[in-house]
Design a protein around this nucleic acid. Sequence first.
RNA 1: GGAGAGGUGGCUGAGUGGUCGAAAGCGGCUGACUGCUAAUCAGUUGUAGCAGGAAUACCUGUUACCCCGGGUUCGAAUCCCGGCCUCUCCGCCA
Length: 434
Amino acid sequence: MLDIRLFREQPEFVKEGLDKAGVDPTIVDTIRSLDDLVRGLKTSAESMKAEMNTANKALGAQRKSLSESEFEAKRLELRGVGDRINEADALRSQKETELQNLLLEIPNLPHEKVPVGKDDRDNVVARSWGEPRAFDFKPKPHWELGESLGILDLERGVKISGSRFYVLKGQGAALQRALITWMLDVHIEEHGYTEVYPPFVVKQECLYGTGNLPKFADNLYHDVEEDFWLVPTAEVPVTNLHRDEILTGAELPKRYVAYTPCFRREKMSAGRDVRGIKRGHQFDKVEMVKLTLPENSDAELDALLDNAEDIIRKLNIPYRVVQVCTGDKTFSSAITYDLELYAPASKGEEGAEWLEVSSCSNFRDFQARRANLRFRRDAGSKPEFVHTLNGSGLALPRLMIAILENFQNEDGTITIPEVLRPYMHNREKIVAVG
RNA sequence: GGAGAGGUGGCUGAGUGGUCGAAAGCGGCUGACUGCUAAUCAGUUGUAGCAGGAAUACCUGUUACCCCGGGUUCGAAUCCCGGCCUCUCCGCCA
């Protein structure tokens, strides 16, 4: 959420930012007039309350010395004042809710470094690493490899749970498990993160905190009877760990890494990426989350991005870093870099594709304000909002696709990346079994 | 899931309708005293919003907040209803 004071003090700046993000900037004027209205109502209601409070205190003090009829007259008079206050308050709170709801639906302003653009076609490839492998045979897509190796069962996934679900079996399941453990180990031991195992269901406040609600309810699974929402990413529970807390400056930065499954309805992506395991309703992910001092968040994003890239380099998969433009950045983020892996056959007959496996973002104080995530620089100083960041490190299914497709052999077996072998009983290859 | 107890300021803990933003103690801060530390004494000490003033972290006024949300009342920390959470006992269970 943006600071309402920004609307009051620098409306042009807000308009400019929203315009770049593809939002109609006239919303700023709407918000300002609503804000003025709310503040006016508040001021007048407060002065009525002040009067009422004084009168009530006086009445309490005099009650013994007043005759019954005098008291009664006074009582009725005050009751009238009370009614008027209630009326004014009702209007105020209605308008205040309206204002709040508007603010909750306004995206974050883009960071000054973000390239201006309309949609993903205006994203900029910042750099790339590794050479796509030259195959001396026609590489197969992961769904063919997976099925023939007996490590991926798309059909039975659909039978059990419906479309966009799949089953991993044998070395396929083992590969995913190895990746999870190995990635966690790297982030913990080499990159300095603290492992967190959070709940996979959260209350709706958490989703408001990260910015998934109220706008993106469409993409979330939730229990209709309870306030239980399945996490769409570990970002949600982990960022909310310190919700409504005031941390000390010395505790920052907090660097967390968590493995969780993620659940998404994918309503807005209906019909897209239906082959294989590229886009499912349930997938696993290792996620890094940081809470930092405001002045350090830019540097922490660079480090976070490098931590995610390090995983890919260790696996030796070609990738590129894409800087997301103002029009394509997500709702809550101020600046985002996507990491995309080269997958030689992921588009089937159409061939290769760059697969997004991580999205590393700095949200600045946008989520912190929603989640009331604060810190105090020194013992006596005022609480300030922290900056929050996160990025996948990495998302499993697409990483698995890249591994299967890049490291496939002509005979249909898969060479296991060396760093993973200790996590897979020192096996070198995934081969078909009976 | 059943029965009971309870949720008050940084902490402990009083407070059952007005004089309560809230006693007391601890802790914190300021000052005094003291070779230093400790002890002692005095004062001070919640957060947020809004309005006005002063202009770097200030003052004044005012409102709100005693788990959350409703209600009763001229007036609610205090009474009523709903919810959440914690603790104890029982049951069940990985």
